[in-house]
């Protein structure tokens, strides 16, 4: 199999001697047009990998910021089909930046796993994070995804013992996403020493890059986390920036895209300043 966009991107960054910056926004938040502009500007603003949320009515593992982003996207008419067509559009102008879809299983199950994998691959998706599919449910989607040549990115958490890390390390593809706190997205933040220790444990089980997410809110935190891992993921903080640029009717203000992208640049600056 030819090298995936994700593997290639990490290889290039490794050669550059730095960690990856992964941004998260929900597709269609706050509306399709704004979301398109945001996502197509992300790479230029410094994102190395795009994590794109597939909105869901009941995001059980997300904090208030991403819940609201998901609700805005659904209210503006986003669907799973719409997410894939958005990815297709992005691929017209950027065939290199890896795209990872993140969400919950029910919309995928409802779409049909095989059909979804086909359509996602055709659209230019590289991998998936599906929050409510732990290794115990790998037959549902993780195995079919890998068989289709797409990465299934497992989450691992501070609650995992060595045996569980091993279980995840054996199955992982693309990269491993370390959820650095026990909590929902956008709440507490971990310390870099705890994270460094966790990354070391994970690396004992797999050669894949390790990304750190949950609770990274500032360029300084992004730098700190990037310096002890292979990638820093920022989600809630960016989504909050979107929310802060809405008028009283929840519509995007004129400066939204510029404001969010300049914040993304600042965060990217933090990651790039880190020693890998």
């Amino acid at each position: 199999m030819s090298q995936t966009r994700i593997a290639k991107r990490f290889e290039i960054l490794k050669a550059e001697g730095r960690s990856a910056f992964v941004t998260f926004v929900t597709a269609g938040d706050p509306d399709l047009e704004t979301s398109k502009k945001l996502l197509s500007g992300m790479a230029k603003a410094g994102a190395d990998i795009l994590e794109i949320g597939m909105p869901f009515s009941d995001p059980m593992a997300d904090g208030p910021a991403i819940q609201l982003g998901s609700q805005r996207a659904l209210a503006a008419g986003m669907t799973l089909k719409g997410v894939l067509s958005l990815v297709s559009d992005l691929r017209q102008s950027d065939d290199e930046t890896p795209i990872v879809l993140m969400g919950y299983y029910n919309p995928i199950y409802s779409y049909g796993v095989d059909k979804f994998l086909n359509d996602a691959k055709a659209a230019g998706v590289d991998g998936f994070i599906v929050v409510d599919l732990p290794p115990e449910e790998e037959r549902e989607f993780a195995i079919p995804a890998k068989e289709a040549g797409l990465d299934f990115i497992y989450l691992t958490t501070p609650t995992a013992d060595d045996e569980r890390l091993e279980k995840i390390g054996r199955r992982a593809s693309g990269f491993i996403y370390y959820v650095s706190i026990t909590g929902v997205t956008g709440t507490a933040s971990a310390t870099s020493s705890d994270v460094a220790a966790a990354v070391k444990r994970i690396k004992n089980t797999s050669d894949l890059p390790v990304a750190i997410g949950f609770g990274i809110n500032t360029p300084a935190q992004a730098q700190e986390m990037a310096s002890v891992s292979d990638a820093a993921v920022v989600g809630s903080a960016i989504v909050k920036k979107i929310a802060g640029n809405l008028d009283e009717n929840g519509k995007a203000k004129a400066g939204l895209v510029d404001d969010v992208l300049s914040y993304v640049s600042e965060l990217a600056g933090g990651v790039k300043a880190a020693k890998a």
């Binding site: 409510d132 599919l133 732990p134 989450l155 691992t156 958490t157 609650t159 995992a160 959820v179």
Partner: peptide
């Protein structure tokens, strides 16, 4: 079908 944090 739960988040990894809860699995253990």
């Amino acid at each position: 079908f739960v988040a990894e944090t809860l699995m253990p």
